[in-house]
């Protein structure tokens, strides 16, 4: 029993190929004679069978050339971005679109305000036109937003 405990403790290292021959020889001898310890060794082997290699890992096409280029371009590569890179483009497009619409709104507001300052007979018309234009600009902004959101989602 004492011999079993002693030998059993060596089984994992034995299967990992980490025992010296001086340690491995008595263990092998014990395993030949002892069914219990053989079962134990079999169990350890079964565990190892779960760690089967899947063959060589796949490397993406042109990886090394890309890395070398990035390294020499001074890319620090840190940290791994939490956002996948593909998402940046639609978001950027959305921001640009939203900005340009906002600029248009400002421009129209400026024109409307200026024309409303004009003491002319057109004043009423200008007043009735501007909310309509603003409404349309806002609707356009909604459309752009929705489209950008949809695109970002699809990516």
């Amino acid at each position: 029993m004492e011999a079993c405990n002693q030998q059993r403790a060596l089984i994992p290292s034995y299967l990992d190929g980490e025992l010296s021959e001086a340690q491995a020889a008595p263990l092998r001898k014990h395993l030949l004679a002892c069914q219990d310890c053989r079962n134990q060794a079999q169990g350890e082997k079964s565990l190892k069978a779960w760690f089967r290699t899947e063959g060589p890992a796949e490397v993406p096409e042109g990886f090394a050339a890309r890395i070398a280029r990035r390294a020499f371009d001074g890319d620090t590569g840190e940290p791994v971005a939490p956002l996948p890179a593909q998402n940046e483009a639609p978001i950027l497009r959305f921001v640009l679109a939203a900005t340009s619409v906002a600029a248009a709104v400002l421009l129209i507001l400026a024109i409307t305000l200026r024309s409303s300052d004009l003491p002319s007979s057109d004043r009423l018309r200008a007043d009735s036109d501007s909310p309509q234009q603003l409404e349309e600009v806002l609707r356009e902004l909604d459309r752009v937003n929705a489209k950008a959101a949809l695109e970002a989602e699809r990516k």
Binding site: A57, I67, R70, D75, G77, E78, V80
Partner: peptide, 25 residues
């Protein structure tokens, strides 16, 4: 390095990020 990384993530894009970061470091 890809072989190592794939044991930590099953996502190929993540694995590539890890290996890339290691080489640039």
């Amino acid at each position: 390095l890809f072989s190592l990384a794939r044991h930590y993530t099953r996502n190929p894009v993540d694995a590539e990020d890890i290996v890339q970061e290691a080489f640039l470091k």
